[in-house]
Simulated scan of single mutants.
Amino acid sequence: MKKIPRLCCLLLCVLLIVSLLASCTPEEQPEPVDEPGGEVPAPFKIGIVTGTVSQGEDEYRAGEQMKERYGDRVIHVTYPDNFMAEQETTIGQIAGLASDPDVKIIAICQGVPGTAAAIDQIRQTRDDIIIVVVSPHEDPAMIDKKADLALDVNNLARGAAIVRLANAMGATKLLHYSFPRHMSMELLATRRQQMEEECERLGMEFIFVTAPDPMGPDGIPGAQKFILEDVPRQVEQHGKDIAVFSTNCGMQEPLITAALEHGAIFPEQCCPSPTHGYPGALGLDVSGIAGDMPKIVAAIEEKIVEKGGAGRFATWPVPINMALLRGGIELAILALEGEAELTNMEDISRILEQETGVSVELQRYSEDGNLFLALVGSVIFGLDN
């Protein structure tokens, strides 16, 4: 009977040892939780190719904006200013982006000559990249098929629209500046023809003036000098109720400057935008309100009215190439993530209206192609719009 207490003591000792060991076991730590806003590895990169500030500031700034929006996921490069003479460089800049296996989107604005060749080169090794082309310079029927998504202003509709706008602003004549290289581009040539036809329909005189090509020997400065010198000659000959228009981005600032100084009418730019030519022509610093289009439009309007141009200068309320580039990239991202269809008209409209904040009218270039053309209403400075 005396063995029972011994067994009890032994059992108690074992229990005590077990409990001591348990108390020494470290507490189980909870799984670490990522804090909101922590860095997440980028699933893919985005390559953006634009012109420089001298060739097209809006699209260059759009590239910068996307860099700010997506950080190191964006690789932004530029094509040469003299892209006509340096097509191999352009091709290399575009195709070079595809050498990074993480790049899944390449967006090009403007689609200068060499873009189609670069797409062909990319497709030899990469079929997993979405290629977006904005404002194609090459044959639209070709880009319509080669690009996964192409976006441009609707030059098929703008020809008549610009003439009607100029007429409503008081123009009796329309002067169209361009050069053979641009007139060899289908959409620009079609727009010119439509302008001429609409002028005839409205009883307006259509005047075509061949300007120096900025890709020529005198470059952009030579083309700008010509505009500054020719507009006053044309106003003196034809009167102040002449609307002036040019097909080249580099000519917009001197065209606005000369039109305002000599009293002509300026309906809109080749690539309509409040920031295309107006700030430079008006000596307006918009850096403090960059991106705030209503404030920029208001600032431009104040200057135009102050200088006596009320009702004679207009543009679109948004920088269209900037919006098309940003919208094209956003749509490509959503398409990669399975949240949108790249060539679905409703998806394109939705994204573009998010980027512009205004209604965008879309037209498909061909029935089953990938090129979509955008049209936006105008703002006439100094009038209630």
Rank of each mutant, 00 (worst) to 15 (best):
K2E: 11
P5C: 05
C8V: 15
C9L: 15
V14G: 01
S19K: 02
S19G: 06
L20T: 02
A22F: 04
A22P: 01
E28Y: 04
P32H: 05
E35T: 10
I48M: 05
I48G: 06
T50Q: 04
V53C: 05
G56R: 11
E57V: 13
D58L: 12
E59M: 14
Y60C: 06
Y60K: 09
E64Y: 04
Q65A: 15
E68I: 06
H76P: 09
V77I: 02
E86M: 09
E88A: 14
T89W: 07
I91K: 10
Q93F: 11
A95F: 05
L97I: 09
P101K: 00
A107Y: 07
I108K: 11
Q110F: 09
P113A: 01
G114N: 05
G114K: 04
G114E: 04
A117H: 02
A118S: 13
Q121R: 15
Q124R: 12
T125H: 10
I131L: 08
I131C: 03
V132A: 05
V134P: 00
V134T: 07
V134A: 07
S135K: 10
S135Q: 13
H137N: 15
D144T: 05
A150G: 08
V153H: 11
N154Q: 05
N155H: 14
L156P: 01
I162K: 15
R164V: 01
A168I: 02
G170V: 01
A171D: 06
K173M: 01
Y177P: 03
S178Y: 02
P180Q: 14
P180G: 05
R181T: 12
R181D: 09
E186N: 08
L187E: 05
L188V: 11
A189Q: 15
R192H: 01
Q193H: 03
Q193G: 10
Q193N: 11
R201L: 11
L202I: 04
E205R: 03
E205D: 12
D213V: 00
P214E: 00
G216N: 04
L228M: 08
E229R: 04
Q234N: 09
G239N: 07
G239I: 01
D241H: 09
I242H: 02
A243T: 09
F245N: 11
S246L: 06
C249Y: 15
A258L: 10
L260D: 01
Q269M: 06
P272V: 00
P272L: 00
P272Y: 02
P272W: 03
T275I: 14
T275R: 02
G277W: 13
L284N: 02
D285A: 00
V286I: 15
S287N: 10
K295R: 14
K303C: 12
E306G: 00
G308W: 07
P317F: 04
I320F: 06
A323R: 11
R326F: 00
E330Y: 10
E339H: 02
E341Q: 13
N344L: 04
M345T: 11
E346D: 13
S349F: 03
L352P: 07
Q354W: 04
V358A: 08
S359C: 10
V360G: 07
E361I: 08
Q363A: 15
Q363R: 15
D368A: 09
A374S: 15
V376T: 07
V376S: 03
S378I: 05
S378Q: 12
N385G: 09
